[in-house]
Simulated scan of single mutants.
Amino acid sequence: METGKLIKELRLKKGMTQEELADKTEVSTRTIQRIENGDVDPRSYTLQMIAKALEVDFSLFVNTKTDESDNTIQGTEINWLAFLHLSGLIPILIPTLLMWNRKKDKTKEMLTHFRAVVSFQLIILAISLAGLWVYWHSHQLIPFVGALLAGGLVSIVNTIQVLSGKPFIHPFFKHTDISRKG
């Protein structure tokens, strides 16, 4: 069921008018009308406010996309997940954290991929630090460079795997499957 139709159905079950829902959500009555008619796709924050006013779980609205728009959303989700894996090229957590924070409520499976990428980055960071320790004591740069190259290779492979809808390699070398619709 489309989000707007679901909101209208829930609103009517509660015996609320569009004006009452608008007052409870701090959204204009016209916006409520446009959402219910399917003229606009509400933002995540607006859906959260509507869910709170209707006393339903926010996740009810997240999975209500129509079949024809689902493929587009799935494609966008795949791109974000692939980009998240690509951020693993650099064992610095800030870009990964920023990306996860921006898309955590909008992209399915983001938490699973985020955990995998962060775990992997921490492993590469630990190996790199150990490699630097080896370099400091024996002047052998190979472990440090090898860790960075291995990390980059796995990040690129995982990005390609996610883009093609195939399982990606988890840091503990367990394949994790994401299913692609369509």
Rank of each mutant, 00 (worst) to 15 (best):
P143V: 00
R34N: 13
I123Q: 14
K104D: 04
D39L: 08
D39I: 10
T64Q: 08
S69I: 03
I78F: 05
W136H: 15
N79S: 05
A130V: 15
N37W: 07
A126S: 15
A126H: 11
N37P: 00
T64D: 05
R115Y: 06
W136C: 11
G152E: 04
T112K: 14
M49T: 04
F114R: 02
I94H: 10
L93Q: 14
D105R: 08
V117E: 11
T66S: 15
G38W: 07
T64W: 00
V145H: 01
V154T: 07
G151I: 08
S44D: 08
T46C: 11
L132R: 09
V134K: 10
W80S: 02
D67C: 05
I50R: 06
L111H: 05
K52W: 01
G152A: 01
W136K: 12
T76E: 10
D70P: 00
L132C: 13
Q48M: 05
S44Q: 12
M110S: 07
H137E: 09
D70K: 07
I124R: 01
L125T: 07
K104I: 01
L125G: 10
M110P: 02
K103W: 13
S128H: 01
G146Q: 05
S119P: 00
S155Q: 06
L153I: 13
V145R: 01
M110C: 05
V118Q: 03
F120R: 07
G88M: 03
P95C: 12
R34A: 14
S87N: 09
S69L: 07
F58M: 11
K106F: 00
S44Y: 08
R102W: 08
G131N: 11
A82H: 02
A53I: 07
L60W: 00
L122P: 13
A51K: 01
A82N: 03
H85C: 09
L148R: 01
A150M: 07
R34H: 12
Q121A: 10
E109F: 13
I123Y: 12
H113G: 00
F144V: 08
T64I: 02
T72H: 06
A150H: 02
L141W: 09
N37D: 12
I78N: 14
R43A: 08
I127A: 09
A130Y: 14
T107V: 15
A150E: 02
Q74D: 15
N71G: 01
R43N: 10
L111P: 00
D105G: 00
P143Q: 05
R102H: 13
I127H: 00
E68G: 08
I50G: 04
N79D: 04
R43K: 15
Q140F: 08
E36D: 12
W80E: 04
A126Y: 12
M110D: 00
V118C: 10
S155I: 02
T96K: 06
I50E: 04
A150C: 07
L89C: 10
L89P: 06
I73G: 04
K106S: 03
V134D: 04
K52T: 11
G131V: 05
W100E: 10
L86W: 02
Y45C: 00
R43C: 08
L132S: 11
W133V: 13
Q33I: 06
L89Y: 14
F61K: 04
